[in-house]
Computed example of a mutant assay.
Amino acid sequence: MSRESGEGVTPGYELPLRLLFAFRTVIDELHERIAREGHPDLRPTHGFVFQAIGPHGTTAVELGKRLGVSKQAAGKTVEQLERLGYVERGSDPADARRKVVRLTERGVDCLVRSARIFEELRAEWVAQLGGEEQLRGLEEALRTLAPGDPFRLDTPRWFGAAQ
């Protein structure tokens, strides 16, 4: 299939592929860098899990809801991240019967390093595009095309089978 349909018109299917490729480029580079900084076992899904856990922690049931996966799938991910030292389970101070998943110091360190690396990558994209204005224009266009909360994590079937 040719890359262009008609006279210089890009086929419609290329846009989502380019957006996905841009996402993968940033995330893959983030993971290469964060691995060199002491976090070699992280996978792209883990960042979404860290965001869903949040600064105050959450239960496995709520984590599953936020990610659009079953309690069991969320529990398996928590077990894996617990073995790697990124999360811990503890009692909820408000209700000792509930177990809350929280980020450990290692998990918070990973988020802090990730935030710094994302800023570095953004600066590199600014340089590649020829200035802050060009990247800001791209970001604004994406906000127009994809409005809403960029931290929305409840996309069913993205992280496993929906409940």
Rank of each mutant, 00 (worst) to 15 (best):
L63N: 00
V100Y: 01
G90I: 14
A96S: 04
G57V: 14
Q128R: 14
R18T: 10
F48W: 04
G90A: 15
L103Q: 02
D92T: 11
T10I: 15
V26W: 05
P16K: 12
D41K: 09
A73P: 00
P40Y: 04
V87W: 01
Q51S: 11
P147S: 06
F48I: 03
E79K: 11
S70L: 08
P150A: 12
D41A: 06
R113C: 02
L67C: 00
R143I: 13
Q134S: 11
S5C: 08
Q72M: 11
H31V: 10
L67H: 00
V49C: 00
D154H: 08
R83L: 10
S114R: 05
V9F: 14
L145W: 12
F48G: 01
E140I: 09
E37H: 09
E88D: 06
R136M: 07
G131Q: 10
R33T: 07
G148D: 04
A115E: 01
E29A: 13
T45H: 02
S2V: 06
F21H: 12
E29I: 12
E4L: 15
L103F: 10
A146V: 06
H56C: 07
G137M: 04
A115M: 03
L20E: 04
L67T: 00
V78W: 02
G107V: 07
E29Y: 04
L129H: 01
E133H: 08
W125K: 13
E7S: 15
D28N: 10
L84M: 11
T10M: 15
G38C: 04
D154P: 01
E132N: 09
G57F: 11
H46N: 03
E4V: 15
P156G: 12
A146K: 11
P44H: 14
K65P: 00
Q163R: 13
A22N: 05
R43V: 13
L42P: 00
R3T: 12
A35L: 04
L84Y: 12
T10G: 03
G47R: 10
G131W: 05
G64S: 06
Q51F: 02
R24S: 14
S5F: 14
V78R: 00
T10C: 09
E140Y: 09
G85F: 05
S70V: 01
E120H: 05
R66K: 14
L121K: 04
K99E: 14
L138S: 02
C110H: 03
V112F: 07
E7Q: 15
A123K: 15
E120F: 07
L20M: 12
D28Q: 10
D95N: 05
P156M: 15
A127D: 13
L111T: 01
V69I: 14
P150N: 05
S2Q: 11
A94D: 08
K99M: 09
G137L: 04
G38F: 13
R89S: 07
F118E: 02
P40D: 11
R136C: 02
R136Y: 06
A127L: 08
A74G: 03
